[in-house]
């Protein structure tokens, strides 16, 4: 089984980078094939909103950079892991620039889910979603927004299941590791 980790950390010194290694190790132990993408080290253009991936090159972004390859690997994956510092409750710029580039995996057409409009997906296969956000201090509103955002993304990407964790304040890597392990045991 394949997993893709999108690490949206803005800097080298960040607990998210430690957790990325932990997740790789745990997934590896469970027999997953893992690809990690440290987005801050990638030259990725931001989405230009042209809808070219729907009407010019259906299923592929018209921007020819590494975003295409990452998008392909996400489509092929069984698990998508998002790591991000909470940024006003949402994803960091680094992560969001890739999230915006994932729309080729959707269709322009709409469907109703619980009476609400969402896009149809291009592929039948969809990865499970695990999102882990880090906040340097506890903040209820940021955490609420983040959990709701992951839930909304999972609805729009039609992820079969989604798991979300927010770690805030002083970090104990052992406790975080146990939480991650618990999540991955459930996912696996």
């Amino acid at each position: 089984m394949k997993a893709v980790i999108l690490n949206g950390s803005n800097e080298n010194e960040n607990p998210l980078n430690t957790w990325e290694k932990l997740i790789v190790e745990i997934l590896d132990n469970y027999g997953w094939q893992v690809e990690t993408v440290e987005l801050r080290n990638k030259k990725l253009a931001t989405c230009i909103g042209c809808f070219g991936c729907w009407i010019k090159t259906p299923g592929e972004c018209i921007l020819k950079d590494e975003g295409r390859e990452i998008c392909k690997n996400v489509a092929r994956s069984d698990l998508l892991v998002l790591l991000t510092p909470l940024t006003f409750g949402g994803y960091s710029f680094e992560l969001k620039k890739m999230m915006d580039r994932l729309i080729p995996n959707l269709l322009p057409l709409f469907t109703k889910i619980n009476g609400e409009m969402h896009h149809k997906t291009r592929y039948e296969k969809k990865p499970k979603l695990l999102a882990i956000g880090y906040n340097f201090q506890h903040d209820e509103e940021s955490e609420r927004i983040f959990k709701e955002l992951v839930h909304r993304n999972a609805l729009n990407m039609d992820n079969p299941t989604s798991y979300v964790e927010v770690v805030a304040g002083e970090v104990n890597d052992i406790i975080v590791g146990e939480e991650i392990l618990r999540n991955i045991e459930v996912i696996s």
Partner: peptide, 16 residues
């Protein structure tokens, strides 16, 4: 505009 349930990346950059 709304991109993927959220603020487009370029605007997040400005807010950051």
């Amino acid at each position: 505009p709304l991109y993927v349930d959220s603020i487009p990346a370029i605007n997040i950059k400005v807010l950051e």
